[in-house]
Design a protein around this nucleic acid. Sequence first.
DNA 1: CGGTATCCAGTAGGATACTG
DNA 2: CAGTATCCTACTGGATACCG
Lengths: 127, 127
Amino acid sequence: MVTKQLLKGLPEDADLRRADSLAREIFSDIANKWALLIIEALGERTLRFSELRAEVEGVSHKMLTQNLRMLERNGLVDREVHPTVPPRVEYTLTGPGQDLRAAVDVICGWTHQHLGHIENARTRFDT
Amino acid sequence: MVTKQLLKGLPEDADLRRADSLAREIFSDIANKWALLIIEALGERTLRFSELRAEVEGVSHKMLTQNLRMLERNGLVDREVHPTVPPRVEYTLTGPGQDLRAAVDVICGWTHQHLGHIENARTRFDT
DNA sequence: CGGTATCCAGTAGGATACTG
DNA sequence: CAGTATCCTACTGGATACCG
């Protein structure tokens, strides 16, 4: 449970509280637009930096590197540098990354499936 | 496909391009920390505003109202006002909201399942 | 109790330029 | 080509105060 605070102050809770705060931290990391879109893009295949930039519509150079570092740090993405010139850097989802990707896929599917419902809800709301 | 730009400029594409940009807009709306945590919290049961505030650890009054309006506008959440005094306002997931909640559940599960992997990846990365 | 408005500090994030 | 650093604006989001 990410949303719930663990019960107060018993000494034995120390480990659980740490795990919970770690979970919340990770959740905050990945629950953002660019991270999820990058994961989704990498689901199909390994991509180089420049390919990712083209694939993830609207992402800036800065946001892309920033999120890639974060995903790498959390073990969701592997970064492979080919020491050629010019350099060639490839990003691949790790196992856990692939798992998460499946969930993101569901969200993407959900979005397209409910476009109509949402559009209606919006016009109803905006009046 | 949320991440891909649709193919350029053929007149027949107008509808598809509209759908795609709408999808991206919706995705940006819901792919944020607070929205997902609120959906997750409401998955268990209908909650009043103040209960939500307690349930979603760390959310501010402002962020909560803001995200609730957004979720209501997109038809993910129903808002029911009981005209008592003091007022009582209850929030419930709609059908589509419940569907999305299932996906968010998967992400929450994923997070807890891979805590170890992630922690290791982090210490490896941070050296 | 729940919602809205105001203020403002912190930061996210774009543009740009430079390195290997 | 990919990464890092710098600058600078715009917006996010918290605190506070006030209405119904």
